[in-house]
Structures are given as structure tokens and as C-alpha cells.
Design a binder for these strands. Structure first.
Lengths: 172, 172
DNA sequence: GTCTATACCCGGATAGAC
DNA sequence: GTCTATCCGGGTATAGAC
């Protein structure tokens, strides 16, 4: 009963989660669905459209994972946990240009909202905290920190300072 | 008088700066040097070896650009300036796994040193500041911030907090 | 909406002559 | 150390039959 487009996006998501963005090819996607690659073009105009739907799905999922957080620290924990649980998906949604014209309206904003609220609405602070969190996560995923690095310590060092900033209302 | 390997790495660097990592192909590289792609394999075992040398070169260049900075703020300015001046090169050296076994010893550490010194030697703080700076830069390069975002403001918001952390010796 | 066949382009890399 | 010829693999996408 499920619709073909939905099945295709789900299969694409699985391919990416298993093997990274490069694993999403029209041939592999068709194979996983038991059809031939050319048939996919009856449902999506091109590969980019499929990929964009996976990104939209991931952004919604992330927004959902962040919704329950009620503090900067718990927000950061949820953010990191999602990224570590879905490394390839996180990379896809957070790296390179966003195909905004292919995304449903509001998806990007919804993913950003929890953070903006957590810092009290200041856009500069929200962007700074976002950059910190993204940097920590992507450097961890890319294996850029030394193997013995205490990442909890680094997160703590960053978060306590940002928390102080928020507490002071940005006046320092 | 210049050596072939050096010429090859320089040409590879130029290709990447002009067209991103994807523009570095053995064929394009040969063409730029006026030789055929197969000839390159007399000088390098494979493409990865060429790429690694470009990364090493970029890391040394970055380390050099940061050496003069004498404060957290000036360090951040130099870091951002280098990334914006060489976006593709910065992406290459900062994203994805580092081919450490192909890099000359000490190159990675040399690039990190100015930051470690600037925060007074605390590794957690250094990693937190690095994550913030990398996040700011890569999100800017990827066009992830709104076009009208005040990035100077976001940098300032982050840097002042980190500066306070450093000033307090990490006790907050 | 699925198929087969295929066009088209691109990549890394090797063999062997000179 | 350069060349030509070539292998081998992979990708997106289209045409046209069913």
C-alpha cells in the first residue's frame, strides 16, 4: 500500500546510511527495490531529486530528535547523539550546499528552531553555538581528533562558556 | 631546474583551487603539465599520493599563516582569512579522513600548534575553539548561513566567550 | 510502470614500445 | 620518462517496446 516514491526515498536513505553518499547510485537504488535503474525516472526526474528528499527526511528527523531538549547541554547531547547514530546521513544533510529549491518549505528552519530558542533568540549566539556543535561533530566523524582525545571534555569546555554567554544575555 | 614531483604537486594544487577536489584527475593533471596521464605514474604511485602532498603543502601554508597571530582573535581572523582565500584547499585539508600515513611527520601538529599555544595549552579548550572556528568557516563556505547573516557578529559572540574561558584558565 | 538496450561520458590504472 | 593503446569499471540518463 505504501507509495513508490516513499519506498524509493527510504531505500535511498538506507543505501546512504550503509555506505555513505557515494553508495547512492541509481543502479544500486533500483537493485534494492527489485527494479531496474531506468524505472526510477518514472518517479523522480533525476538523482538530485531523490537525494533532496532524503535530506528533507533527515532534517525532519533531526528536528524531532532535538525537540525534547530543554537546555543547551541536553540539546548538544541530542545533536551529537543523532550525528553519531547516523554519520553518513548527518554528513549528507550538513555538508556541501543545501538544495534549498528542492526542499519542502520550512524544513530547514524547523531543524534550526530548537537551538534558536535555547539561546533566547539571539541569532549571533545561535550561529556560534551551531558552528561549535557542527565542528565538534564533523571533526569527530572525520576522525580528526586524536584517538585518545577527551571529547566529552572539549564539549564541556565549549558548552559551559556558551551557557555563560546565554545566561548573561550576550553581555560580556 | 625544478623537480618533476614538485611541479606535479603545484599543478594539482592549482587544479583543486580552481575547480575543487573533483577537478583533480590524472588526465587533467597531465594535461596541465603537457604530458600524458600515464606518465604521472612514473613519479607517484597513484592519485592518492599526489593528493596527500597537496594536503601537506596546504597544512604547512596554513601553519605559516597562523604563526604571526598573537591572540585568539587575530588567530581566528587569520584562520578565516586563509579558508576564504583558498576555499577548495581548505575543504580538502579539513574534511574527510586525513591520509596520515602519507603525510610527512609533524605537519598536522605544526598546523595545530598556534591554537594550542593561544589557549594556554589546555587541549579541551583548544579542541573546542578549533571546532568553533572550523564550524564557522565550513558553514560559511558551504553557504549554510542565511545570506544576510552577520557572520562577524557570530564570530564575535563565540570568540569573546572563549577568550573569557582562556582568561579564567578554564575555571567557570 | 516496468523492461531491455544503449548512448554517452568519465574515472584510475597498466602494458609495452621507444 | 615519455608515449600510445587499452583495459576495466563506474556513473546518469534516454528511447522505445510491452
Amino acid at each position: 500500500m505504501s507509495e513508490r516514491p516513499g519506498q524509493i526515498v527510504d531505500a535511498a536513505r538506507t543505501l546512504i546510511e550503509e555506505g555513505g553518499s557515494a553508495a547512492l547510485t541509481m543502479r544500486a537504488l533500483g537493485e534494492r527495490l527489485g527494479i531496474r535503474a531506468p524505472s526510477l525516472y518514472k518517479h523522480f526526474p533525476d538523482k538530485g531529486a531523490v537525494e533532496a528528499q532524503v535530506i528533507a527526511l533527515a532534517l525532519r528527523e533531526l528536528a524531532n530528535a532535538l525537540a525534547a531538549a530543554d537546555s543547551l547541554v541536553s540539546l548538544a547531547e541530542a545533536y551529537r547523539a543523532y550525528a553519531l547514530a547516523h554519520p553518513h546521513l548527518y554528513r549528507l544533510m550538513s555538508s556541501g550546499p543545501l538544495p534549498r529549491h528542492l526542499l519542502p518549505a520550512g524544513v530547514e528552519e524547523a531543524a534550526a528552531l530548537p537551538l534558536v530558542r535555547a539561546v533566547g533568540g539571539d541569532p549571533d549566539q545561535a550561529r556560534a553555538v551551531w558552528a561549535f556543535a557542527h565542528g565538534m561533530v564533523i571533526l569527530e566523524l572525520d576522525g580528526r581528533f586524536p584517538p585518545d582525545a577527551d571529547l566529552d571534555g572539549a564539549w564541556h569546555a565549549g558548552l559551559t562558556t556558551f551557557a555563560a554567554l546565554v545566561r548573561d544575555g550576550g553581555r560580556r
